[in-house]
Design a binder for these strands. Structure first.
Length: 442
RNA sequence: CGGGGCGUGGCGCAGCCUGGUUUAGCGCGCUUGCUUUGGGAGCAAGAGGUCGUCGGUUCAAAUCCGACCGCCCCGACCA
């Protein structure tokens, strides 16, 4: 893509009240633009990142046999009345009427409609288990949207639903999904913790969250300094040590008669209930959630299947969410410096930007750009008529992993420079060996 | 929903307290020209504003008062 024709805008300033790095940088680098409270446009650059995240998620979901489909964003009130959530959900559920006066909702999640679908098709144990997923807009009329895309009202989510015949099958699927999630977040360059969590309004008994450490996060997690025990603050257990310094290190599963649910705060006396090491509180951002839904929706909506004995039972359900539009923000929270964003390779909007810094190298820079493009590299060509400094600053702000600089070093030594965003490392490559060496850097 | 704050060219802000000498200002960005060009260049000349909306007070309102709308921040709640 030639930058002179790219719909983007970078700025030196962000509004004073934006307090999170990710929010500031997303605005400054021109990834998103706020339209109204909690609702954002993704500009081409931001959309590319989002799209990369989507690809990773899709890839890993497909790999564990989940099937992609698409459910409606606008749904009739009826199914919500049957499940009971028409009354339970409160004002977060945005409701409105069509011209005929029928009530509709902008879907905040899709359990009702997917259960209704499963009810028609999954009528026999022979067809189970099944996992379906979609990548779709959700709307939750949040009391208070915040942090830019971190907590928006309209957001993009991957939600998967599993239907099983029994607990054993369910457990298997749950583990597969967990594995897929671990790979998703690793590929996105995110550090994460898997913690036990509440399942809230979605329902169900077992629930785990993938929390990524970020000061912008809304969740507080408790982490053991020694054995890796990790939990949401409100679900955490601790033991109060009577005599200090008894046990050090991780002892694995131990009987802990003094175990107590943690209150809202931990004191220095609260120790890990597993290994008795000190605990600490961190802020984190929920990026993924696994729910064991049980029979809540299938029984209410009458989604029954026949088992081996010909008996009719409700489908055993699970659901699995990934907050896709939140992930770019989470990545930025963990990957930035004073110059801007530092995208991990897999989610970078472009892998490289070709920068001519002199009029005499402009034509040659286009050749290099075309050659990279010909090798299927997502590459930008900064063909703008502006100073080298501006090009470098913009590239750094936007977080492009590699700068391909063609300027005075090329004129003097015939060498193309490649500079890494992450550590500033500068590599000079001979014109003739450029492509081979560059591909080696990818 | 409770508490706090803000709405002024495309973006970021000042001006408001103490109404009129302000033709509504500054920085960034934008346009044109010249000089520049390896880390957000310089000079010169320009374009661009119903000061959120409606109403009130006043000889006079960006400025004071009221209502409304929108947005942000803290809290409770949530991917």
């Amino acid at each position: 893509m030639r930058l002179s024709r790219y719909l983007f805008s970078t700025t030196k300033e962000a509004p004073a009240e934006t307090e999170f790095v990710s929010h500031r940088l997303m605005l400054r680098a021109g990834l998103i633009k706020q339209v109204t409270s909690g609702i954002y446009s993704f500009l081409p650059l931001g959309f590319r990142v989002l799209d990369k995240v989507v690809s990773v998620v899709r890839d890993e979901m497909n790999a564990v046999g989940a099937q992609e489909f698409l459910l409606p964003f606008v749904q009739p009130a009826e199914l919500w009345k049957i499940s009971g959530r028409w009354d339970e959900y409160g004002e977060e559920l945005l409701r409105f009427q069509d011209r005929k006066g029928n009530w509709l909702v902008l879907s905040p999640t899709h359990e009702e409609i997917v259960t209704d679908l499963a009810k028609e098709i999954l009528t026999s144990y022979r067809r189970l288990p099944v996992v379906v997923y979609q990548i779709q807009i959700k709307f939750r009329d949040e009391l208070r949207p915040r942090g830019g895309i971190i907590r928006s009202r309209e957001f993009l989510m991957k939600d998967a639903y599993s239907f099983c015949k029994d607990e054993a099958q369910m457990k298997e699927i749950y583990q597969e999904m967990r594995g897929a999630y671990e790979r998703i977040f690793t590929r996105c360059g995110l550090e994460y913790k898997l913690v036990e969590a509440e399942s809230g309004l979605i329902g169900g008994d077992i629930s785990h969250e993938f929390i990524t450490p970020a000061s912008a996060g809304e969740d507080k997690i408790v982490e053991c300094e020694s054995c890796g025990y990790c939990s949401k603050l409100e679900k955490a257990n601790s033991v109060v040590e009577e005599n200090e310094g008894v046990s050090e290190g991780c002892l694995g599963e131990v009987e802990t008669p003094n175990t107590k649910p943690m209150e809202s705060l931990i004191s220095p006396k609260d120790k890990c209930s597993v290994c008795h090491a000190p605990l600490r509180i961190k802020r984190g951002l929920e990026v993924g959630h696994l729910f064991h839904l049980g029979y809540k929706y299938s029984s209410k909506l009458g989604a029954l299947f026949s088992n081996e004995e010909g008996e009719k039972n409700p489908l055993l359900m699970g659901c699995y969410g990934v907050g896709i539009s939140r992930i770019p923000a989470a990545i930025i929270e963990q990957n930035n410096d004073e110059d801007g964003i530092i995208w991990p390779k897999e989610v970078a909007p472009f892998k490289a930007v070709v920068i001519p810094t002199s009029e005499q190298t402009f034509d040659f820079s286009e050749k290099v750009y075309q050659e990279l493009k010909g090798n299927s590299i997502d590459v930008l060509w900064d063909d703008r008529d502006t100073s080298a400094g501006v090009k470098f600053k913009d590239s750094d702000l936007m977080g492009i992993p590699l700068k391909v600089i063609i300027g005075r070093t090329f004129l003097k030594e015939g060498k193309i420079e490649v500079k890494k965003r992450k550590n500033g490392e500068l590599i000079k490559i001979d014109k003739g060996e450029f492509i081979q060496q560059f591909m080696g850097l990818m």
